[in-house]
């Protein structure tokens, strides 16, 4: 990559798995950024927190899930997984329901996250 950004890149994942391809395509952007040597932060917010729920499976007709991709993130050196605490609570979930260790983000920290990452991709 010719121009490495001085700030880490932020990929915001706001869609649940299986129902649409937004989550998968958002993760692809994160993986490609990391493969290019860019430092990448993931923020799961809104329905995006459903991506992390344990016990997911392949869908009907063999539709691939995204849970193996989440396990793969560490191989791409994507280690900053942030979860919006409020989105998690709204959905009746707690940290131990999630398949990976994450960092919970308090609501007041969200604006500075957006301000201190570039580029920001919102999926």
């Amino acid at each position: 990559m010719s121009d490495r950004s001085p700030m880490p890149m932020l990929v915001v994942l706001r869609h649940a798995p299986h129902g649409s391809s937004w989550l998968r395509e958002g993760l692809d952007v994160a993986l490609v950024g990391a493969a290019f040597g860019q430092s990448v932060t993931l923020l799961f917010i809104g329905d995006g927190v459903e991506a992390l729920v344990k016990g997911q499976q392949t869908g009907p007709l063999g539709q691939k899930g995204t849970h193996p991709t989440l396990d793969m993130l560490a191989m791409y050196d994507i280690e900053t997984l942030l979860v919006d605490a409020e989105s998690l609570a709204q959905r009746g979930l707690i940290e131990t329901d999630l398949q990976l260790p994450v960092t919970l983000v308090a609501p007041e920290r969200l604006p500075s996250l957006f301000a201190h990452h570039a580029p920001v991709f919102n999926f």
């Binding site: 990559m1 010719s2 890149m9 860019q38 580029p119």
Partner: peptide
């Protein structure tokens, strides 16, 4: 997709 990341930067 690399071209998208590159364009953003």
């Amino acid at each position: 997709v690399g071209q998208l990341v590159e364009a953003a930067m």
